[in-house]
Every structure is written in C-alpha cells, then in structure tokens.
Design a protein around this nucleic acid. Structure first.
Lengths: 208, 208
DNA sequence: TCTAACTTGTGAATGATTTCACAAGCACCC
DNA sequence: GGGTGCTTGTGAAATCATTCACAAGTTAGA
C-alpha cells in the first residue's frame, strides 16, 4: 500500500465524525462538498483522500452514509475495540482515564499505572491504579497494544522504555518530552504548551 | 513577512526546549546537527527553519546557546507573559488550569469559567471559577487574548461565539468539535480521540 | 428516450515543504 | 601564515500535498 499522509488520516477521522452525526439524523447520502464543509477543506480534497482507498461513491448521487461510515471504520481500524493503558495517575492521566471521548470511540482504558505508592491501589470507577512494575507481567492480561504516557517529562523516557519492553506498539505521549523508542513502536506527541506557543507566534507576527 | 509554515513553528518551539535545557547544563554553543537530533529532523531543516528569520550562527562554530534562545523567544513572542482564560471547569479544564507546563512557559491562567452554578465560586489554588456570563465584563480586567475551550462538544460553538465577542484573538480548542469563528480569531484544535485513531490506523495498516 | 442537473474519480498542474550540495566563514594547530 | 576540520546559509532539486478541471456515470423529469 502506498504511504498515506498523516494529514489525510486526520481528515478521514473528521469525515467519520460527521458521517456518524449524519447517520444518526437519518441522512441517507452525502456529497463530497458536504463533507468538505465540515472538515474545513475542499470537495476535491475529500475525493482525493477517499480515492487512496477505493471508490465509495456513486456519480451524480454522492456517498451512502451507512456504507462510507463502515468503510472508514474499516480503514481506520475501528471495527475492533482497542484496549489502552494509561501510565501516570496525575491530573492529566486521571482526566484521560475518565474521558468519555475515548470509550465512545472504541478505545477502552483497561489499566492505569503509577509508581507512587500513595496512588497505587486507589480506585476510579472500575479501575484500580496499578504499580508500574507490574506492566510487563500484566501484558498478557490487558492485551493492550496502545499506551498513553501522562507522566512528568522527567519520567517519560523511562516509561517509554518500559512500554516498548512490555510489547506496546503505539504510544500517545502527553509528556512534554521527546522520547526515543525502537522502530517497531509508533509515537505521537500531544504537547499542549507547543500549541499555545504556536498561537503566541501567530498573534505576535500577525501584522505583516 | 513571508508566510511561515506551521510545521516550522512547531519545530522552533522544540528547538527552544532543547536550547533551554542545554543552557541550564552550561553548554555555550550548539550546532544545527545537535538541534536536529533532538527535534527528530535534519540539520539542513534546522538551518532552513532559522533562515526564515535571519542568520544566528557562526560558520564553523554553531550557534550561541544564549543568543539563539533569546532570538527564538522573541520570534515566538514569548518575551511577554500571556494571560490565558480557560472555559470549562470539568476534568480537562481542571487539569489544564493546574498544569505547570503552561505557567512555566509564560502562559498564566488568569481565570476559569463554567456555566454550572455548582461549580461557580469554587476555588483551586488562587483561582475562583467564574460564571461564564461575566466573560465580556471581565475582559478589561483579565486582558486575555488567548482562551482554551475545555467544554463538552455540544457547548463549544456557543463558547467560541462568546469568546470572539469578548475580544479573544486565539483559541485552543480541546472540545471534539469543529468550531467556526470570525476571521480575526485563530483556532487550533487538540483532539485526543483523533490522535488515537491515527495510531489505530497506523497499527492496522502497518504490514504493507 | 432525451435533456438537465448533479456528483464522482482522477490525471495534470500548481504550490508547499524538505532535502541536497556546496561555497564561504571561522577556529585551531603547526 | 597556511592547512585542516567543522559548520553555517542558501540556491537548486526533489519530494510531497493540494487544487484544478473535466470526462463519465447517475437520477429525475418531460
């Protein structure tokens, strides 16, 4: 398969959002123009994005909402439920563990880890915070391939090493640190301060 | 000024991180290759990024850590402190308000808003949750030009309208919803479910 | 059956970003 | 002072992503 751009994948996720909403409101078909309006892009872009994966529409008519929804779910790998573990039971970890946006979209938080003895054993909902040392031994039980790092920056690398060793294949890193991982592990960074700095730059250099 | 790519600005922020760390550990000069290693890019990319703004290095020697740090701070608009308001005192809003990564980098949370009467008036640290209705009347006091939306998706658009009206010029949107704003307002989205879906896609389509 | 109004899928063109490659500057040492 | 080893800054080339533009398919209505 040809390599697909990151930007394309992001847009596919957005299209899927809109399709789900359209489906719930009973809409039967949808055009690339409609999808474009929602994803803040152009109809040509929508069609190009989809064309990497096949042809899903009918000329003159548009796309079947139900069929395209299901195709996109398949493309994005969302037909299965993904077990996810979170490392770091601080403010951000807690918020993420209880965030419905994950559950609702097929990502189920199956375990939360921390290294602080005062946190280990405490419960939220049905989850008990576990000792980070049991990461490896839990692997067979949790079967998670995706992990979220929500620790302070200083611990991020150690946690990443741990995760890679426990067989995790993809990491969503919220810690403000660049982490190094073996090539079979995928990392995506979410760095909130970076986003704010982008806004600061734009506001500062707006007048041209 | 020529338009600068988003990707360039992100990398500048990363370089700045590394420079600050290098400065603290007493390093005097640094080469584009060093910066590249940290930012997961190439030395040519680093030099090109910087070249949009001037020439900061000395051939044969590299960059002065102190000078480049200060230049990047200036470019990114980080010499001033930015007052920031947060709308939404739920899990995510709370976590963000107390997140040191913001304070530490020149973004000071000066107010938190919600519309739930049970939350209004509660305190965290030195911040009291305010009624969202007082957004406009507070504007002169807070002087914030940047706002963070941390509400459920359903309220995001209404909040954005409110913010635009109160004179906010840049929005960091954590709500999983696309918001529409007037052209003088800048929006950047952070959508955590989207990031996970990107990982799901990559894991699913890895074997080519 | 014919026409009009839409809409897709896709090569080709354009635009943006990254990488290459190298002249030129600087420091150090003999 | 001249040679050696680094490193920057930057046009040019290559790669990657988006937009254009249009043939071809579909529906609906007369």
């Amino acid at each position: 398969m040809k390599r697909i751009a990151d930007s394309t994948v992001r847009r596919l996720s957005l299209y899927l959002r809109y399709l789900e909403a359209a489906g719930e409101s009973g809409q039967q078909t949808i055009s690339s123009g409609d999808l474009a309006r929602f994803g803040a892009t152009t109809s040509a872009q929508v069609r190009k994005d989809l064309s990497f994966f096949g042809s899903f529409g009918k000329r003159g008519l548009g796309y079947s909402v139900a069929e395209l929804t299901s195709s996109l779910r398949g493309i994005l790998g969302l037909e299965q439920e993904w077990p996810v573990i979170i490392v770091g039971a601080g403010k951000i970890g807690t918020a993420l563990a209880q965030y419905h946006g994950f559950r609702d979209r097929g990502f189920r938080v199956v375990a939360v880890y921390d290294r602080d003895p005062r946190k280990i054993g405490t419960k939220w909902d049905s989850l008990t915070v576990r000792d980070i040392e049991s990461l490896e031994s839990d692997a067979a039980e949790t079967r998670a391939r995706i992990a979220v790092i929500a620790t302070p920056a200083a611990q991020a690398q150690a946690v990443a090493d741990h995760l890679a060793h426990a067989g995790i294949r993809a990491i969503l890193n919220f810690a403000p640190a660049q982490i190094r991982v073996p090539p079979e592990v995928l990392v995506r960074n979410v760095n909130m301060a970076l986003e704010l700095e982008g806004l600061s730059f734009a506001l500062t250099n707006r007048e041209r």
